[in-house]
Every structure is written in C-alpha cells, then in structure tokens.
C-alpha cells in the first residue's frame, strides 16, 4: 500500500524551477532514499511536504489525506515527523525538554489545567515522560538527558533531532541528510538505527542522503534528482549505474 503519493510537484523561486514536475510514491514500511547533487531540490521536497512552501502545482497525498489542505502545524498530527539538514533544535533547553516537545501532538490538556498543574496534567506528563524514556533507551541518550543542547557536540545533536522526531510516534519519518557531519562510525550507527526504526517501530522512512554506502545499506528504492527533475528511480544498484546520475555526480565524461 502506498503511504505517500507525490504527483507532478513543482515549485519555483525567482524564476528558477527548484522542483520540476516530480512524482513518486513511497510504499508503507519501506525505506525510500532521495539522492542528487547539492541544490538539486531534495530538501525543497521535504519543505513542501512540511507545508513550509506553497507548491506551484501538484498533489501531495499522505494516507488518504490531501496535505495541501493543511498548514505546517497540522502535519505532525497526521503522523509525519522530520529532521532538518542544518539542525533545528531548541538550543537553550535541555535534551529532555526537546524530546518532550516531540510529544506536543499527544497533549490534550486545556490551558487552565496546565496553569493549575492539576493531577490530570501530572498523569499526562508522566505518560509523556515514559514514552520519551523509551526513545532515550532506544537511541542510548541517557547520558545527555539533562544537558543543554547548546553545549553538545554535533553528532549528539544529530541523534537528538532524530529522537525528537521519534517522540511524535510518526507513521512517516523524513530524514534530511542523517549522516552529514558524522564520522564513519557514527554513520554506520545511523544505518543500524534506520533499520531498527523500520523493523521494530514499523515506521516508513524517506531519507535524503549523499553517502551512497548508507543508501545502499538501508534503502529499498532510490530516487535520483538533478536540477529539480527526476532522473531515474529504482533499486540502488540500478540508480547508481544510470549514466545521468554518474555524470551529475562526477561531471561529464567526454
């Protein structure tokens, strides 16, 4: 069954078509990778899915919902979580607080109950905490639980952003360059986690990635984009050997 369907998606910035007539579908339970050189429009697709940008044309469908009818703040509630290429953590808050914000969509306490901090709020908070602790255990973040984000190294921040997305308990996880800035061991670790997320947590994953070994390791299908246009789609060996993909990455071989 298709969880995510994107049809004829286009957007342009100042006359430049950043995404040009892109269509693809992501099957439920799969790991789908999007590759392409810098500036190809990969992150723009994620930002369109997050409803930060308004597309020029096209259809975005997620589990029977038309995303174009929704606004950015409603996307998480449907079960779509994401990470950001340049990390968008809450810098001046602790790791625990960051992860608890991930539980926001599951909050149903009215504002006045929160002001009075009634017992129902306490119950709900304890439940959120238990869920967050599960994620902390899963990604082995216990050591950092009470530290401020602003003092943490890049690799750890990257992990925390993934953890925060998992706290939403999403159906679909969008990872924007999960391995960028990580060293080889950390990248390998990330690969294992993505596998675990799919297998143990039953989430569907779409990732944008440059590290082809990671793509080869985790993905079921790969989409290659150059200059906003789809070049080819298929399994990773097929996509990697496609002449246009090769030339986009290595330059034209005369």
């Amino acid at each position: 069954m298709n969880l995510l369907e994107i049809e004829n998606l286009s957007i342009s910035f100042g006359g430049v078509k950043a995404v040009d007539d892109v269509s693809f579908v992501v099957e439920e339970g799969s790991v789908y990778a999007i590759i392409g050189p810098n500036g190809a429009g990969k992150s723009t697709i994620f930002n369109l899915l997050s409803r930060f940008y308004e597309p020029l044309s096209g259809q975005l469908n997620f589990a029977g919902n038309d995303l174009l009818e929704l606004r950015a703040k409603d996307i998480a509630r449907l079960g779509i979580a994401r990470t950001f290429q340049n990390l968008e953590l809450f810098e001046h808050a602790s790791v625990l607080q960051n992860l608890l914000v991930g539980r926001h969509v599951h909050n149903s306490q009215s504002w006045w109950r929160q002001v009075l901090f009634t017992s129902s709020v306490i119950e709900a908070e304890l439940e959120h905490r238990r869920k967050v602790e599960e994620v902390i255990d899963f990604l082995e973040l216990a050591h950092y639980r009470n530290q401020m984000i602003s003092g943490l190294p890049y690799g750890v921040r990257k992990k925390i952003e993934l953890a925060r997305a998992l706290c939403i308990e999403p159906k679909l996880l969008l990872l924007d360059e999960p391995s960028s800035g990580l060293n080889p061991e950390e990248t390998e670790e990330m690969g294992f986690w993505i596998e675990d997320i799919r297998r143990d947590l039953n989430m569907t994953v779409v990732l944008i990635e440059h590290d082809m070994s990671l793509v080869a390791e985790v993905s079921d299908r790969v989409l290659a984009i150059v200059d906003g246009k789809v070049v080819t789609e298929g399994d990773h060996t097929f996509v990697q050997s496609h002449p246009e993909v090769v030339s986009a990455y290595l330059g034209d071989v005369q």
Binding site: K73, R82, F84, E88, F90
Partner: peptide, 10 residues
C-alpha cells in the same frame, strides 16, 4: 528557539 521546527512538531 526555532519557530520552523516547532511547527514541524505540531
């Protein structure tokens, strides 16, 4: 701290 990511978290 980050309006965009707060939106992405609902």
């Amino acid at each position: 701290d980050s309006e965009v990511s707060s939106q992405a978290l609902g």
